[in-house]
Amino acid sequence: MVGHAHRIRLGHWQRDIVDAHPDRFPRGLFPSDGRHTTNRVRSRRSDGSVRGYADPRRFLGATPDDIVRLAEAAPDRTGIAHRRAPRDLAVGRAR
């Protein structure tokens, strides 16, 4: 854990709110504890043309593991694409 000697857990009343609104919990975490970037991707198709797109991507890192685990549960429940690295959570738009 980074900077915390105790576990970070939601109380029962907090869990009820997060369960009722799983998309809103990470929306509060990412602006305060995360960073935002644009993921630009270019790929070459079989016909030789190049396709490009840009997706917003948010990262939650340098954050206690307990908070990252709590934040990771919301994309799981809402179907939002995400990936977890050892100390980072990346969330993007589903393709």
Rank of each mutant, 00 (worst) to 15 (best):
L70A: 02
D55A: 04
R51W: 07
T38R: 15
F25S: 07
H4Y: 13
D16L: 13
Q14L: 02
T38V: 15
V41P: 04
D88V: 12
A74F: 02
R69K: 13
P31R: 15
D47I: 08
N39K: 15
N39R: 15
R7F: 06
A85K: 09
P64G: 02
A94I: 01
R44L: 05
G34Y: 05
I17C: 08
P26Q: 03
L70V: 02
R51K: 07
R35T: 14
R24N: 09
G48S: 09
D66K: 04
R95M: 06
F25E: 09
T37H: 09
R58Y: 12
R84S: 04
R42L: 13
G92P: 03
P75D: 00
T63S: 03
R9N: 09
G11Q: 13
F30Y: 14
E72M: 10
I17W: 11
P26R: 02
I80D: 05
L89K: 08
V91F: 01
P26K: 01
G3Q: 08
Y53W: 14
P75E: 01
A94H: 06
G34F: 03
I17S: 04
G61P: 05
R93Q: 05
I80H: 07
V2L: 13
H4D: 12
T78D: 01
G28H: 14
T78P: 00
M1A: 14
F25N: 10
Q14T: 04
A94V: 06
F25A: 08
D65E: 15
H82A: 04
A62I: 11
R35E: 13
D23E: 13
D65L: 14
R58F: 11
H6R: 12
I8H: 10
P56L: 05
D55H: 03
R51Q: 08
P86G: 02
G52R: 10
R93P: 04
D33S: 13
A74R: 02
G48D: 10
A5M: 13
V68P: 04
G79K: 00
L60V: 04
H82I: 00
T37P: 00
A74D: 05
R83A: 14
V68F: 02
P64V: 03
T37C: 06
T37F: 11
W13R: 15
G79F: 00
L10M: 10
P75C: 02
R45D: 12
R44C: 05
Y53K: 06
D55N: 05
D88G: 09
D19K: 07
V91S: 00
T63I: 04
G48V: 06
D23N: 12
D88H: 11
H21Y: 13
S49F: 00
N39D: 15
I17H: 08
L10Q: 06
R42W: 13
H6P: 01
L29F: 06
P22E: 02
R42C: 10
P26V: 03
R44I: 10
V41A: 09
P31W: 11
A73L: 07
P86E: 06
P26Y: 01
I8M: 14
R45N: 13
A54G: 08
R42H: 14
S46L: 10
L60F: 07
